[in-house]
Design a protein around this nucleic acid. Structure first.
Lengths: 239, 239
DNA sequence: AAACTCAACTTGTTATAACAAGTTGAGTGA
DNA sequence: TCACTCAACTTGTTATAACAAGTTGAGTTT
């Protein structure tokens, strides 16, 4: 056997999870139990558990144990991000809550100013939101809104998502340019989103334009990969 | 200080990477050097390195050292996946190579048969491809194509991407429904894609329909998160 | 000059040990 | 009954130790 012991153990546990021997939310054997079952040291048992955690299959809680990760995903449609609605999400069986962390005027960072087409260090509104799904953290959103619209809709934006709020209040949007990528949780984000260090996160970077092609909103939604996915439908150009 | 030593060390290294003190591809201090620099045991030094690896900031090679991960990303446009072209990618400064791993008729798994609207265990063509970027593995693609089209374009499909090949050869597509999600590399995929266990991967699941609304192609592209991202532009509905 | 050997590095695996810190439930006391 | 204490669990952090295995370059041999 050239495969390490900790790999053998974690692969065996992974198989047991996949065939349903351990179900979502179940507690896996403790390190001590693994030590006895496989006759290995705690380091090896621990490494096996770390493998499962790094694969997103389990999550460890100090004092409690290691539990199989629930894989309940919610789909966010990129084909129509302009009509994102709470009840559209509730239909998927998840209770959503927004928590406004920050909403204040600030000086635009260089990169943001470039995208929004305003002078560097011009005034913009910075908004940070935390999205909870069934009470647990699901995503954080950091966005910059041009100053005039920020002032105009300050009271509304502190409680709602940006796209529909703008569209419903006399600021029809023309389009949203976006990039979807994937990253690993750093120390800060792992704390915010309640995931282990290195956990996979989805990043949705967006820039919204009004009908006169003015970029007014630029930001990123960083969401837990185990709770979020994006759907879209692309039509072929006629011809 | 309640923050663990290994976190302090990895955060310090992370900062040095971010400010450019260590550049892409540079070798980080060895475990032995960290032990002396910070007066810690090898376990702690090792844990600090593991933190960087799990965050995708570095990658370790046995016998060689730990190196800062190059973050060269290629963008794939979801707004027009039907016209994916090699030269469109080459424009981004990366040399692409397709490696056909599998192309053979097989029996459709239940889930695939459902999506393609064919009887369970009907015949389909299974294709597995490996996409290399500048020689290094970038993505794997696993797709199922309905039998009649598989037979018709067998010779072509062994060398090219699916969407443009179909569109260019008399099978105009109507649309592609897709879901973008994110996962962690399991033991198999980490070997294929040359990434550490648990590394973030993007998953692009797609179903392509012809103009008569017939689903003909269903599959998934699994790509390295550090080398791939997706872009799209969403227009507001007129009205 | 070419090929081989090998010491000195590197990270990977595994064991033993101790203490810290969070959670839980049984038992004790008021 | 209620509240408190605490033992017995859990995972987290850290140290010391040894060997395995891959890489590299200096040195030797051919």
């Amino acid at each position: 056997m050239s495969t390490p012991l900790h790999i053998s153990i974690s692969e065996q546990l992974r198989h047991q999870i996949e065939v349903g021997e351990y179900r979502s939310g179940d507690r896996l054997p403790s390190e001590h139990q693994l030590m006895e079952t496989f006759s290995v040291s705690r380091i090896t048992a621990r490494q096996a558990m770390a493998n499962l955690v790094s694969q997103g299959l389990a999550i460890a809680y100090r004092g409690k144990g290691v539990f199989v990760t629930p894989q309940k995903k919610v789909t966010y449609s990129l084909s129509s991000p302009l009509v994102f609605l709470d009840h559209d999400m509730a239909r998927q069986g998840v209770a959503f809550t927004f928590e406004n962390l920050v909403f204040e005027p600030t000086l635009a960072p260089a990169a943001v100013a470039t995208v929004l087409g305003i002078p560097p260090k011009a005034s913009v509104y910075l908004q940070k939101k935390l999205l909870r799904m069934d009470g647990a953290a699901g995503a954080v959103d950091v966005s910059y809104l041009v100053a005039d619209l920020g002032e105009r809709f300050a009271s509304l934006l502190e409680q709602q998502m940006s796209f529909p709020t703008l569209a419903k209040n006399g600021i029809p949007l023309d389009r949203v340019d976006a990039v979807v990528e994937c990253t690993h949780a750093d120390y800060d984000l792992s704390g915010y989103l309640e995931v282990p260090l290195g956990h996979a996160l989805m990043v949705y970077r967006y820039t919204a334009y009004t009908r006169d092609q003015r970029p007014v909103l630029h930001g990123a939604t960083i969401s837990r990969a185990d709770r979020f996915c994006y759907s879209l439908s692309t039509r072929a150009e006629p011809g």
